[in-house]
Nucleic acid binder design. Structure first.
Length: 441
RNA sequence: GGAGCGGUGGCCGAGUGGUUGAAGGCACCAGACUUGAAAUCUGGCGUACUCGCAAGGGUAUCGAGGGUUCGAAUCCCUCCCGCUCCUCCA
């Protein structure tokens, strides 16, 4: 949620910042509604005050006086009730409008309308020069009997996959490796719920605007009315960030650093036809996520550290990658600054996103009402709560890491070398080879 | 699915329709006492909105919404959530 107070104080600055991301259509209307509400609230509160004062007198009034005051009170009560109804309506309208606006980009985010405006920050590790033609992960995976996409389509439709044998184990190994990496750095591991309420998704910004990207789930068979559906999480950022929804944390506790492994579910409504081959874009995938709660002053440092963490993971897996600073047009709705990490894919001879690390500033914190109480300089006075900063970053997308590992470490004969650091998680094998002892898939 | 109970401030917990933003306790903060600490005593201590340069004032808030009433934490209705027992289940 955008900061309504800041908007009212300096609407022009707000419009300028938002215009960098494109549309600012309803900003004026939001401002108008906000001011209308204030005016209404003034009248309402004056009326409530009068009512309360009159009522005070009723307590010790004689029966005759009470009888006399009754009419007046009844009328005043009705008027108050009417204004309260107006207030509810106008606040609903204000909130509905306010929830539509994306976060404002920070000044150090480059302008641009799509991914072409992104700025490469650095490259890490040189892609290997192959003396043979690179196979893609589907050819490699099918060749080694690690994956079966056709049969998954039979079971669940497009954009699903079975991982098989060492392929399944590799996925598990990667996730485990990543989590241990984060734990060694001091993160707290979480295993979150995968189904969440609509309110939770409003907190992180997926709703109300982006419901079509989500899967929703009913209690029991589909029905027309009844209990509100739950949603499958598109990332564990959603449940973890909302973990402290509605709470006030003491400043001394910040920053808080969590990591979480989870399945992620995305409807991919807007991406029909994109990345249809292979495991790059699935309805269901695994991801290890980093989530941070920080003071606004700590946020920038935390962001850089997450990027470094993700990069270190890729380096540990010997995967060439680059860090990219996203431009205003390519950032997510809730983000005010985002770095993507892109891993080298030999089959496509290009870098593809494998992690996205963002600071959302106080945008999500205002939606989910997560605040912190600054440590007071004067021990006699306590500071007022402020929204804290939330950050999240992939560390890493496990499915895409699986893809990148196969492709980058493939050998001429179609087998795949396992990087040193991962071997303890795979029974100490150094290579994925075709298992000739088993029959055809 | 069947039966019952309950949702009050950071926590515990009282609350007869009006004097309750809400007793009391714990926790926390400041001060006093003490060489220091503990104990004790005194005071402070929710959140949001709103008016005001400020000091300070006002309004709302006892799970949510609606109703009865001049007046609701207290009475009525609906919903949500939690707990216990039985049933079922990984």
């Amino acid at each position: 949620m955008i900061d309504l107070k800041a908007l009212e104080q300096d609407p022009d600055a707000f419009a300028r910042a938002l215009r960098r991301r494109g549309d600012v259509a309803n900003l004026d209307e939001l401002l108008r509604v906000a001011r209308e509400r204030k005016e209404l609230l003034g009248r309402l509160q004056a009326m409530q005050e009068e009512r309360n004062k009159l009522n005070e007198g009723m307590k010790k009034a004689t029966p005759a006086e009470r009888e006399a005051g009754r009419d007046r009170m009844r009328k005043l009560g009705d008027e108050v009730k009417a204004l309260e109804a107006e207030q509810r309506i106008i606040e609903e309208r204000r909130d509905a409008l306010a929830l539509q606006f994306p976060n404002s980009p920070r000044p150090d985010v480059p302008d641009g309308k799509d991914e072409h405006g992104n700025v490469e920050v650095r490259r890490v590790l040189e892609p290997r020069k192959l003396d043979f033609t690179a196979r893609d992960h589907v050819d490699l995976g099918v060749g080694l009997d690690l994956v079966d996409i056709e049969r998954a389509a039979k079971i669940s439709g497009a954009r699903f996959a079975f991982l098989k044998g060492q392929g399944a184990r590799l996925e598990r190994a990667l996730a485990s490796f990543m989590l241990d990496f984060h734990l060694a750095a001091g993160d707290v591991e979480m295993a979150p719920p995968l189904l969440v309420t609509g309110q939770t998704l409003v907190g992180t910004g997926q709703l109300p605007k982006f419901g079509e990207d989500l899967f929703s789930v009913n209690f029991g068979p589909p029905k027309e009315a009844g209990a509100a559906p739950l949603y499958l999480i598109p990332t564990s950022e959603v449940p973890i960030t909302n973990y402290y929804a509605g709470e006030i944390l003491d400043e001394e506790r910040l920053p808080l650093r969590f990591c979480a492994f989870s399945q992620c579910f995305r409807a991919e409504a807007g991406s029909a036809g994109r990345d249809t081959r292979g495991l790059i874009r699935q309805h269901q995938f695994e991801k290890v996520e980093m989530v941070r709660f920080a003071t606004p002053e700590q946020a920038n440092d935390e962001l850089e550290r997450m990027v470094q963490r993700a990069s270190d993971l890729l380096t540990a897996l010997e995967l060439p990658h680059r860090v990219v600073l996203l431009c205003t047009g390519d950032m997510g709705f809730a983000s005010e600054k985002t770095y993507d990490l892109e891993v080298w894919l030999p089959s496509q001879a290009t870098y593809r996103e494998i992690s996205s690390c963002s600071t959302c500033g106080s945008f999500q914190a205002r939606r989910a009402q997560i605040r912190y109480r600054p440590t007071s300089a004067d021990p006699k006075k306590q500071e007022k709560p402020r929204p804290l900063a939330t950050l999240n970053g992939s560390g890493l997308a496990v499915g895409r890491t699986w893809v990148a590992l196969l492709e980058n470490h493939q050998l001429a004969d179609g087998s795949v070398r396992i990087p040193e650091r991962l071997r303890p998680y795979l029974g100490a094998i150094d290579t994925l080879r075709k298992d000739e002892s088993r029959g055809a898939p």
